[in-house]
């Protein structure tokens, strides 16, 4: 796993916006994760070098944030909101349904590497609770029946 030249260019472009390159750390992690799915130790090291930081400095930042993955995840991460409004309106039913349907517990990835199931805090759509994100897409007013539809669409097992 190494950085592509596109990624390197994108990172350097971001870095130029700031008084010093390490300020682009989060942008850089986002850029790389978008294409690689997660941040491996090797990638972390390369990004750190590019930004003139030690790997430890960058990891200190990477491990702080919820959306940076330092372990492999599936091609699509299912983030189900477990905050208050969704919790009240059935987030747990959805979670159970997903776990059963995909055969994974929270934090796990399906055998075919397609899905990882993770909780997430309020997605800012409480009026359409329960809400979940699959990859980049947000789904509203989700219930187990709708989940079957959605996962059907996106090619679930």
């Amino acid at each position: 796993m190494t950085l592509t030249s596109d990624e390197i260019q994108a990172i350097l472009r971001e870095a130029r916006h700031f008084p010093h390159p390490s300020a682009a750390a989060i942008e850089a992690l986002n850029v790389v994760q978008r294409s690689h799915g997660w941040i491996s130790d090797e990638l972390l090291q390369e990004i750190a070098e590019l930004l003139g930081m030690s790997p430890a400095e960058l990891d200190s930042i990477a491990t702080f944030y919820n959306l940076i993955y330092r372990r492999p995840v599936g091609r699509r991460v299912i983030h189900y909101c477990n905050s208050v409004s969704c919790w009240m309106l059935g987030a747990e039913d959805n979670r159970r349904h997903l776990s059963e349907k995909l055969g994974i517990a929270v934090g796990e990835t399906t055998g075919n590497g397609e899905y990882t199931l993770l909780p997430i805090v309020c997605l800012g759509a409480c009026d359409k609770a329960p809400v979940l994100m699959i990859g980049d897409e947000t789904h509203f007013n989700v219930d187990p029946a709708r989940l079957d539809d959605i996962l059907g669409e996106t090619g679930a097992p």
């Binding site: 030690s54 430890a56 491990t63 702080f64």
Partner: peptide, 9 residues
């Protein structure tokens, strides 16, 4: 030094 850090939250 840059090899001792705080991780996670």
């Amino acid at each position: 030094g840059d090899d001792l850090q705080v991780f996670a939250s």
